[in-house]
């Protein structure tokens, strides 16, 4: 029984992580992780600035069809 519960718990965590990633909810966390691993020591944007930049970039070009 505990194995099943643990399995459900794992599945729940991974689906939740996927949902956050699809919707872009965790974009800032991933940005911080990327900065920490690839550009350590450099200044990072704060949450608000990051999302402003992200939106501007997304809507610069063609981003959707009919």
């Amino acid at each position: 029984m505990p194995e099943i519960l643990a399995w459900i718990h794992r599945k729940w965590l991974s689906s939740w992580a996927l949902l956050r990633q699809v919707s872009g909810d965790d974009a800032y966390d991933r940005y911080l992780a990327h900065q920490a691993s690839c550009h350590p020591g450099q200044p990072v944007l704060n949450r608000k600035e990051f999302f402003q930049r992200r939106l501007t970039r997304k809507w610069q070009g063609i981003s959707r069809c009919c």
Binding site: R20, S23, D25, K48, F51, Q52
Partner: peptide, 14 residues
Amino acid sequence: YMRSIRPGRVLEGS
């Protein structure tokens, strides 16, 4: 809401 009140909380805002 997503810009100023809770920046970037996409799931919550949606």
